[in-house]
């Protein structure tokens, strides 16, 4: 299956499920909008699927992404593994925030990211600490906003 077909197929299936769920809602006012909108998505997804199947002639390996076709990033493409690697940093940061809170997670994430991507230890640590101090100073101290303290440090 071509990669471009995954999105419309996923949407068609998901919205079909949504219609099934919405059908059981007690009021017309609750179900009609959902059924209409989800129905439109299913319809459009099927049209798009048909177009992908019918009009796409290029072999899979030569089908460029929309971005590459527009010449972005110098026409280069990146692999899912590359994106996955960077996305895992985001996930890890979110997990660190959940466990240890913003104040602890921020400098650790910034320093670790910079170091693993080629910066030396000293600038990585300094940047992490400075950024965390800046954020703490502005949000917590000055604006008295509550940055999440994390599961381990929550009272």
């Amino acid at each position: 299956m071509k990669a471009q077909m995954i999105i419309p197929l996923f949407l068609a299936l998901a919205m079909t499920w949504a219609i099934k769920v919405a059908w059981g809602y007690p009021y017309q006012q609750a179900k009609l909008s959902v059924i209409f909108v989800a129905g439109m998505v299913v319809l459009l997804a099927l049209v798009q699927l048909a177009r992908e199947v019918r009009f796409s002639r290029a072999p899979r390996s030569h089908q460029p992404t929309a971005e590459a076709a527009h010449g972005e990033h110098g026409g280069h493409e990146a692999s899912a593994a590359q994106y996955g690697g960077e996305a895992s940093w985001m996930g890890g940061f979110a997990l660190a925030i959940y466990l240890f809170g913003f104040t602890v997670a921020m400098p650790i994430f910034i320093a670790a990211y910079m170091k693993t991507h080629g910066t030396k230890w000293a600038p990585s640590l300094i940047t992490g600490v400075l950024m965390a101090a800046f954020c703490y100073g502005i949000f917590t101290w000055f604006f008295e906003m509550n940055l999440y303290p994390g599961v381990f440090f929550a009272k």
Partner: peptide, 16 residues
């Protein structure tokens, strides 16, 4: 390598 972690920090704070 410098910009991304700092921007993501701000983005996550904004989101939270």
């Amino acid at each position: 390598r410098i910009l991304v972690p700092n921007i993501l920090t701000i983005v996550f704070i904004g989101s939270y």
